[in-house]
Amino acid sequence: MKTLKIISLLALVVIVSAFTINPKNNDKGYVVGDVAADFSLKNIDGKMVSLADYKDAKGFIVTFTCNTCPYAVAYEDRIIALNNKYASKGYPVIAIMPNNTAVKPGDNLDAMKQRATEKGFTFPYLIDKEQTVYPKYGATKTPHIFLLQKTSKGNVVKYIGAIDDNYKDVNAVKEKYVENAVDALLAGNNIPVKETRAIGCSIKK
């Protein structure tokens, strides 16, 4: 009887452990309204960058992107345009490369530097080398956008999803989700669309 009790107790420990050892497995990331934690990631210039560095920012267009995904490449010019339009208004782009570079060597730091130079990136291009930041956000694609607004509570997530509704052709875009969201925040209005499905390549673990 004692042996049976011990076996039952061990079985219970195993079951409980399965749900508690790695809570990140059940973490789907931020939802609109959550306060996003800050991070410290290496930029292509070798310096560490945090959101806290931007004292005068009103918020951030956090963009998970990379060099090797065709969707991300298709959106590069639009990401540059977002920064050009909104950085001076208090909403700079913060680009983060989330892929495992052992799986995607074309996304390593040297390749990131080269791509940023070729495209003339004027925003930080950070590497999530340990892949600890993108899971917190719940990013699943490249590109995947998280619009944050700086408040007294912290950086509140205001929009999650795609940049717009047409990755193939910028001239065929009908809904500019990120632009509409930032414009609404700047005007003090409600964001018309707060979440969309991100279209892109899966993040490589």
Results as ranks from 00 to 15, higher is better:
7 I>V: 15
8 S>N: 12
8 S>L: 08
9 L>S: 11
9 L>P: 08
10 L>Q: 07
11 A>P: 05
11 A>E: 03
11 A>D: 12
13 V>N: 03
15 I>D: 06
18 A>S: 15
18 A>P: 01
21 I>S: 11
25 N>K: 03
25 N>I: 05
30 Y>M: 08
33 G>A: 14
33 G>E: 11
36 A>I: 03
37 A>Y: 07
41 L>S: 06
42 K>C: 05
44 I>T: 13
48 M>P: 01
51 L>K: 00
52 A>E: 06
52 A>I: 04
55 K>P: 10
57 A>E: 01
58 K>Q: 13
58 K>C: 07
62 V>S: 03
62 V>K: 11
62 V>M: 11
63 T>A: 01
66 C>W: 08
70 P>G: 08
71 Y>F: 15
71 Y>S: 01
71 Y>G: 05
72 A>M: 08
72 A>I: 04
72 A>G: 04
74 A>K: 06
74 A>R: 06
78 R>S: 05
79 I>S: 08
82 L>K: 03
86 Y>S: 11
87 A>K: 12
87 A>C: 04
89 K>N: 14
89 K>C: 00
89 K>M: 12
90 G>Q: 07
94 I>C: 11
95 A>T: 02
95 A>P: 01
96 I>F: 15
97 M>T: 12
99 N>Q: 09
99 N>W: 11
103 V>D: 14
107 D>C: 12
107 D>L: 12
109 L>H: 15
115 R>Q: 12
115 R>L: 09
119 K>R: 09
120 G>P: 10
125 Y>T: 07
125 Y>N: 06
125 Y>D: 03
126 L>C: 02
128 D>S: 12
129 K>M: 13
134 Y>N: 15
135 P>W: 06
136 K>N: 07
138 G>A: 02
139 A>Y: 02
139 A>K: 02
142 T>W: 04
142 T>A: 06
142 T>C: 03
143 P>N: 05
143 P>Q: 07
143 P>L: 00
145 I>R: 10
146 F>W: 02
146 F>T: 03
151 T>H: 10
152 S>M: 03
153 K>N: 09
155 N>S: 10
155 N>K: 08
155 N>T: 07
159 Y>V: 05
160 I>E: 02
160 I>N: 03
161 G>C: 00
165 D>E: 00
167 Y>V: 09
168 K>N: 15
169 D>T: 07
169 D>I: 11
169 D>Y: 09
171 N>G: 09
172 A>E: 10
172 A>D: 15
174 K>H: 10
179 E>Q: 13
181 A>S: 03
185 L>E: 09
186 L>P: 04
189 N>T: 08
191 I>C: 00
193 V>W: 05
193 V>P: 00
195 E>L: 05
197 R>E: 01
200 G>F: 01
205 K>S: 10
